[in-house]
Simulated scan of single mutants.
Amino acid sequence: MTALTTITVTLPQIAKMIDYSLLHPNLTDEEIRDGLEVAKRFNVATACMKPYSIPLGKKVLAGSDVLISAVVGFPYGINTTKIKVLEAEQAVEDGAREVDMMVNIGKVRSGDFDYVGKEIRAVNEAVVKRGAALNVVLDNDFLSDRDVSRICLICSAARVAFVKTVFFLQPGRSYERQGKMLSRLRLMKATVTDGIRIKVAGGIRSLDELFIAMLTGVSRVGAASTAAILEEATARGIGSIPVKIALPPPADE
């Protein structure tokens, strides 16, 4: 029998691992406001939102240390580099402290890594110059291990803040059961250089899934199920005092 893995955590530590995702295209202003209040109540790391919502985010999150992250080129990275740079600059000027830029999926799959690298460097320069951090986002539904490795190397050379992988799960599919999420995260962790952190979004819907991501070396998770995850933590007796949690081995082991 495989031994259980233990992890010692607090509720504030878990909360600061979470980017609360407010990106669903049909969210109303009132629903976004409600989500921001949840982010503020739990004191998560960031509220991740569409660029037009940044002013609302600044208003609701005022007085807290919850940062705003905004998406650029979302969701498939198809905008030109010039537009991505302008989007990123505007987002930071409006109040975003982190920028999530989607790589151009078509260019990656075409093997045009010169284009991809120039774009990442251009957006990173624009963001860092304005005092914010860049997250380079990879869509795992479309990219191979080789693609991900190449992008991680490019991001490492550019010294971006985070490389972020997203899993848009389709009905009837579970990347965790298949081991794809874990293997991809391990590949990223093994490829990026020291100081480049890893995020994962999509597919993290429970506290144990967050813990597994943490054990894999992930620094931050994006989750629309933030309230459910943190309420589950509270129900399991996790609070401000560190507690030890026993976890089963990951599904692919």
Rank of each mutant, 00 (worst) to 15 (best):
L67Q: 09
K82C: 12
I68M: 03
D65G: 09
K84C: 05
V44R: 09
V9W: 01
A62M: 09
F42E: 09
S21Q: 07
G35Q: 00
A70I: 04
V72D: 03
N43K: 11
N79P: 08
T46G: 10
V38R: 14
K50S: 08
L36H: 01
A88R: 02
T28F: 01
K82M: 13
M17L: 12
V92H: 14
I54N: 02
T8W: 13
V44W: 13
I18C: 04
D19G: 09
G63E: 12
I14V: 11
L22R: 00
A15T: 12
G73V: 00
G77E: 05
P75N: 11
E37I: 03
K82P: 14
D65I: 13
I68Q: 02
E87L: 10
H24G: 13
F74H: 13
G63S: 10
M17P: 03
P51T: 07
P25C: 05
V71A: 15
S21T: 10
D34G: 03
A62W: 08
L22Y: 06
K82N: 14
V44F: 12
F42H: 06
E89R: 15
T6M: 11
G77Y: 01
A15N: 03
Y76C: 06
G77V: 04
P12F: 15
F42C: 08
P55R: 07
D29Q: 12
Y52P: 01
I78G: 01
G57Y: 01
E87A: 10
Y20A: 00
T28M: 07
Y20V: 04
E37H: 06
Q90I: 10
V44M: 07
V85K: 02
A15D: 00
P25L: 05
S21G: 09
H24I: 12
E87G: 08
S69K: 06
A88V: 15
E87K: 11
Y52L: 14
I83V: 15
K84F: 00
A88E: 04
L86Q: 10
I32P: 02
E87Q: 13
Y52I: 13
T80A: 02
L23V: 00
V71I: 04
V38Y: 02
S53Y: 09
Y52Q: 12
L56A: 05
T81K: 08
N26P: 03
T6A: 14
I83C: 07
I83P: 11
I83M: 09
R33I: 15
A39G: 12
D34H: 05
E89M: 14
K84G: 05
I78A: 05
V60E: 04
D34Y: 05
